[in-house]
């Protein structure tokens, strides 16, 4: 919590020495995550909302409603959620391992002695990079999640036209913004938890491993708890998006 405040303050206050680090962290997260995320979102979109919901709707003879369901399932819930899981598991653990190793080798203390603020030069770029990356990955996950849905529709032998029709009548800008904001905040939670755990690692090799373990557990729990509160608030404050047309 204190680290969050410190990070935001030092992100906003000049000077801004973290440009290069920001870009490299951004590319790092991008390179690490694109493939796991692709597999995960297609698998998730095809399996959970795709097949199960299609089964349910086929019984009603209303498979064309699957598009509408995908707005609800994929945009509002699963895309941000899968992105958060993958980012926490892949980029978050890498960040904790990296910072933890630096802490163990006393590089962080060395930086401090040199008069370089580790929060400003290490945490802030990771924090910003992860926020931007999760926000952008949300769109990516949406695309591939919907691809999973299309796959499920095709497996059931239905035409795609009705899928898109119900999808676009139901999709609203509020949904998309809600999804993006949620995802960006997930990125912030993950970055802060993982940086904190990395920077406070202690106790040699076992310590780094344990720090990664704890970081990922705390990040998951934090993301899920936050997700529940956010969905609840969004649904309650925007009743119009809960109506399926």
């Amino acid at each position: 919590m204190i680290l969050t405040g410190k990070t935001i303050v030092s992100a906003l206050r000049p000077p801004y020495p973290y440009g290069g680090e920001f870009v490299s962290q951004f590319l790092f997260a991008l390179r690490l995550c694109w493939f796991p995320l692709l597999v995960s979102t297609v698998a998730f979109g095809y399996g959970a909302p795709g097949l199960q919901a299609a089964n349910f709707l086929v019984l009603f003879g209303a498979l064309d409603r699957l598009g509408g369901f995908f707005v609800l399932a994929s945009i509002r819930e699963f895309a941000p959620f899968v992105v958060a899981i993958v980012l926490a598991g892949v980029a978050g653990t890498a960040i904790t391992a990296d910072l933890g190793a630096r802490k163990i080798r006393e590089e962080l203390d060395a930086l401090q002695v040199l008069g370089v603020d580790p929060v400003k030069n290490l945490v802030v770029p990771r924090f910003l990079a992860l926020m931007v990356v999760t926000g952008l990955f949300d769109v990516y996950a949406l695309l591939f999640g919907i691809f999973g849905g299309i796959l499920a529709t095709l497996v059931n032998g239905a035409p795609l036209g009705p899928f898109w029709a119900t999808f676009f009548t139901n999709a609203s800008v509020t949904d998309l913004w809600g999804s993006l904001v949620k995802c960006t905040l997930f990125g912030a939670i993950i970055a802060i938890v993982c940086c904190y755990k990395g920077m406070t690692a202690s106790g040699g090799a076992a310590g780094v491993g344990r720090a990664v373990n704890q970081a990922v557990v705390i990040a998951f729990l934090g993301v899920f708890a936050f997700n529940y509160v956010f969905t609840q608030t969004l649904l309650a404050t925007h009743p119009e998006i809960t109506v399926i047309k």
Binding site: P36, A43, F44, V90, A94, A97, G100, R105, V208, G209
Partner: peptide, 27 residues
């Protein structure tokens, strides 16, 4: 110590992909 950290991170990547694949195939 660095190696342990990276190994942990790598195992997590593989596990996430694995969990999703099992979930899909199982369904």
């Amino acid at each position: 110590p660095v190696g342990v950290g990276t190994a942990t991170a790598k195992s997590m990547v593989l596990n996430i992909v694995f969990v999703h694949l099992i979930g899909m195939l199982g369904t």
